[in-house]
């Protein structure tokens, strides 16, 4: 097994279990620069994700990184979601802390009729009570599918010659809100987040109108 394969496998393992990394700010030490995460849960389907984040040497705690997740199913590589972005902890008053997260999203969906490639954004705010060994927080976010490329299959074109190309304005968007919690010890976190999802019109709901994520973080100096 050559080095490239080893790097690929390492990346896959440290980045396959994800919605977004959940952080206990009270247990994250300034010298812990690297955070790798695995997670699984419900995120528009049963998903597995992994993530890597890096804590920057800045006055305000900032964590930047990338996430990758796939839904379960027979074809594991036809659908996926990647996110690149960062979280800034803006306010800390006693054990209460407020942070915001900004991520660019690239995701793909494929079935018998179409392949969709989408660029979007995921913005959220998190406010909570953080202790070194545990935390409880609430989060509100908006996941926007900004522009999507549609490429239809021959099967679809037998039914209707749907036009391929980039579709704009925004092709979708969902608001989500919920709670985050977790336990921390030494350089480890076990996290849980759960909440509800509503479409951007605040009236309709997705088929799976909730999200749940179990995660594990390993923080490395």
């Amino acid at each position: 097994m050559n080095t490239t394969k080893l790097i690929f496998i390492f990346c896959f393992i440290t980045m396959s279990f994800c919605h977004a990394q959940t952080i206990n700010w009270a247990s994250l030490q300034r010298e812990q620069r690297h955070i790798t995460s695995l997670n699984t849960g419900l995120d528009y389907g049963v998903t597995f994700g992994l993530a890597y984040h890096c804590q920057l040497k800045t006055t305000l705690p900032i964590v930047v990184g990338a996430e990758y997740s796939i839904p379960s199913g027979k074809n594991l590589v036809d659908d996926f979601k990647t996110k690149v972005g960062g979280t800034i902890r803006w306010i800390s008053i006693g054990d209460f802390q407020f942070s915001t997260k900004v991520e660019g999203v690239f995701r793909r969906y494929e079935n018998n009729y179409v392949r969709l490639n989408n660029f979007g954004s995921d913005l959220s705010g998190i406010i909570g009570y953080y202790r070194p060994k545990w935390f409880l927080a609430g989060e509100v976010g908006f996941d926007k599918a900004i522009v999507t490329h549609f490429k239809h299959t021959d099967l679809m074109k037998e039914n209707f010659a749907a036009k391929d190309g980039w579709y704009n304005p925004a092709t979708g968007g969902n608001l989500y809100y919920g709670v985050q919690s977790g336990l921390s010890w030494r350089s480890h976190d076990l996290t849980l987040k759960a909440g509800r999802i509503v479409s951007q019109d605040f009236k309709t709901k997705p088929l799976l109108p909730l999200y749940v994520q179990f995660g594990y973080n390993l923080k490395i100096k």
Binding site: V46, S72, K74, D79, L208
Partner: peptide, 18 residues
């Protein structure tokens, strides 16, 4: 965990309509 169910639910993050 089936492909069929996830094909239906995963789509909701790409396309929403009033």
């Amino acid at each position: 965990t089936s492909e069929t169910l996830n094909d239906a639910t995963y789509l909701d993050q790409f396309i929403t309509g009033k």
